[in-house]
């Protein structure tokens, strides 16, 4: 089942990158697809992430900086990053203050590709 493979992929990324405390995959219209958020409300997270991705992509477009690679908030107690997964989904990563951002940027690329392929294989 694609969702189980999706969750496994998200958990593998959480294990691989120090500081990831939760992950979620949402559709572009803000519905949760799979979540491993560790207590954060997944529905709110999905809705906010889809909205945020739309705004971030519009911002990138507005300033002529090409394809959006990542959008991130950084707060006193951690950070949240989102990544577009193809044209239909968004991956959300929640991290603590020690999130290994260089590992995240390196390792998330493969995860995004795999998730996009899983979604494509499931006929989306």
């Amino acid at each position: 089942m694609a969702e189980d493979a999706l969750l496994a992929e998200m958990r593998t990324l959480r294990e691989r990158v120090a500081g990831i405390t939760g992950t979620a995959l949402a559709s572009r219209d803000g519905l949760i697809v799979r979540e491993d958020t560790g207590g954060v409300d997944p529905d709110n997270l999905a809705a906010l992430s889809a909205t945020w991705l739309a705004l971030a992509q519009r911002m990138s477009n507005e300033v002529g900086q090409g394809l959006l690679r990542e959008a991130m908030t950084r707060s006193t107690a951690g950070c949240v990053a989102i990544y577009a997964v193809g044209a239909r989904a968004v991956l959300v990563l929640i991290g603590d203050e020690g999130l290994d951002i260089s590992s995240l940027r390196r390792d998330s690329r493969g995860t995004l590709d795999t998730i996009a392929k899983l979604l494509a294989d499931s006929g989306v």
């Binding site: 572009r28 219209d29 803000g30 529905d43 809705a47 906010l48 909205t51 739309a54 519009r58």
Partner: peptide, 10 residues
């Protein structure tokens, strides 16, 4: 127009 409908629920 581009924003997800879920925003309203939020």
């Amino acid at each position: 127009r581009d924003l997800p409908a879920a925003f309203r629920l939020l």
